[in-house]
């Protein structure tokens, strides 16, 4: 990020840019929305045919594709809406309870 906002919470009223402008574009990625998620998509790569339906349907561009193949989900931004799991023609994506996942991860 070009714009230094480390201390923005302490900025005085007249330190902000006019009209609440942000002096750069395409910065929504810095705002992590993954914390909203209650269920996370998990892909079974055995079943996946890389049709990329999930990539097309994902409203948050959280399906990462490399060389025309599904690489992974971007869990920093995936809100867990589940559209990918519904649209997957091979049922290769399942939605896993986030708490269950974390418990499993810890053990």
């Amino acid at each position: 990020m070009k714009w230094d906002i480390k201390n923005i919470k302490n900025w005085k009223y007249n330190q902000h840019l006019e009209g609440a402008l942000i002096p750069e574009a395409g910065n929504a990625e810095y705002y992590k929305t993954g914390g909203w998620r209650t269920e996370r998509p998990v892909i079974d790569k055995e079943k996946c045919t890389n049709c990329l339906f999930c990539w097309i349907f994902c409203p948050d561009t959280s399906v990462i594709v490399e060389d025309a193949k599904i690489k992974e989900f971007d869990y920093d931004h995936c809100k867990g809406c589940g559209v990918c799991a519904v649209e997957c023609p091979k049922s290769a994506i399942s939605m896993i309870d986030e708490n269950e996942f974390k418990k499993q991860e810890n053990t």
């Binding site: 923005i8 009223y13 902000h16 006019e18 402008l21 942000i22 574009a25």
Partner: peptide, 25 residues
């Protein structure tokens, strides 16, 4: 050449109050 973002969401950090004071001034 100098891209900007306009009309961004301000709700979680909350600078709305500060911008209103500026508008008044």
């Amino acid at each position: 050449e100098n891209p900007v973002a306009v009309g961004s969401f301000d709700g979680l950090h909350g600078f709305y109050f500060e911008h209103k004071k500026v508008q008044n001034e």
